[in-house]
């Protein structure tokens, strides 16, 4: 039984560090896993990646997609990636704050701008993310190739929740991550972790009063069937990352590495297009299929939430450690600079 302590990620033998020695006809089969269903944001992204890189490489590279968490939930996929069980993965910070605690800054509310084009620029150019945070990932054997978003978080609820005062004691379903919990505690809510699969019946039976998700997920999970209000809060972005196993990546010849980086760069804008498209369509579907009342926050209401959310920022630094303050402050400064352009 062969069980070397160190996993080798490349299925085909070869793939030496020395690019010059690589035979031109060498072919590769890589596994790319994501958590979402057919036709979702992640799925379209990964399919695009597959399409472009297979074409670029003249069929030398073959991508096998594992959708819907078929080979494990988010945490397990991330661990598979760390250990070379898969080469690529869409790794979402919301699910991996238990592995890279620094990434929980994405759970903070009103961290980015309200303008998606500017957000795209931030994700592309930010040193705080692409260097400082990525180094934290690398320490955990995850190489982040790109940060991007699947859309902004919106709230669904039984009663209206457009002012912080209405949140007092409000049973909000969140993931069990302490930063997400802190973000809603900042409004005075009672964050209640419930497994994703139980959210629908939890809302239906009033065990929980509300939940947060991007529009495409709200539509997909039919939460609008059992909720009265949809507040377009844009409280934070559902950020995700395209990640690769670093040992595998480093073992590839230079030209193949470049091909990967190029492909990721080319679909950077595409990721923003799919999220806009899918979330827009999801909102239309929700409007068409339900009587749910759709509320947009006024400028004053947003300001009130923005103000209330600040206590969570301190909690982030306190919880993750002093070095995280540097990342957060850098990011805030970068956002300011781009916002004021």
């Amino acid at each position: 039984v062969g069980c070397g302590p160190k996993p080798t990620a490349v299925e085909n033998p070869g793939g030496q560090e020395n690019g010059a020695d690589t035979k031109p006809q060498e072919t590769y089969t890589w596994r790319f896993a994501h958590e979402e269903i057919d036709g979702s944001v992640q799925d379209l992204y990964v399919k695009k990646f597959k399409e472009i890189i297979e074409k670029k490489s003249d069929g030398r590279i073959n991508i096998e997609i594992y959708p819907v968490g078929q080979i494990g939930d988010a945490t397990q996929q991330c661990e598979l990636l760390q250990n070379g069980g898969i080469e690529f993965g869409i790794v979402s910070p919301g699910n991996t704050g238990t592995i890279v605690p620094e990434n929980q800054l994405f759970s903070l509310h009103f961290l980015f701008t309200d303008d998606m084009d500017k957000n795209a620029e931030i994700f592309k150019t930010s040193k705080a993310l692409n260097e400082m945070l990525s180094n934290k990932y690398l320490e955990k054997n995850i190489k982040v190739l790109a940060y991007w978003t699947e859309g902004a978080m919106q709230w669904t609820s039984g009663k209206p929740v457009n002012t912080p005062a209405q949140w007092k004691g409000f049973k909000m379903r969140t993931m069990p991550s302490p930063m997400i919990v802190a973000a809603y505690e900042a409004y005075g809510a009672n964050p209640t972790p419930v497994p994703y699969m139980e959210v629908y019946s939890g809302l239906q039976l009033n065990m929980i009063e509300g939940q947060e998700n991007p529009l495409f997920a709200i539509e997909e999970m039919k939460f609008y069937e059992v909720q009265k209000n949809l507040t377009l809060a844009n409280s934070n972005l559902y950020v995700t990352t395209t990640a690769v196993n670093p040992d595998f990546f480093n073992s590839l010849p230079k030209d193949i590495q470049d091909m990967i980086l190029e492909t990721v760069d080319e679909i950077r804008d595409y990721s923003f297009e799919i999220q806009a498209d899918l979330n827009g369509k999801a909102l239309d579907k929700i409007k068409e299929k339900s009587e749910i009342s759709i509320v947009e926050l006024t400028a004053e209401e947003r300001e009130a939430f923005r103000e209330a959310s600040k206590t969570a920022y301190d909690k982030y630094v306190k919880m993750v450690g002093p070095h995280s303050k540097e990342i957060l402050d850098t990011l805030i400064a970068e956002v300011k600079a781009i916002e004021s352009k």
Partner: peptide
């Protein structure tokens, strides 16, 4: 896994075994 997927480190089997008893329900 051992015969057909030598690239997979068999220690990952433990991860999947644990995953089976994770669901809260």
């Amino acid at each position: 896994l051992v015969v057909y997927f030598p690239n997979i480190n068999p220690l990952l089997a433990t991860q999947q075994i644990i995953a089976g008893v994770q669901p809260f329900v």
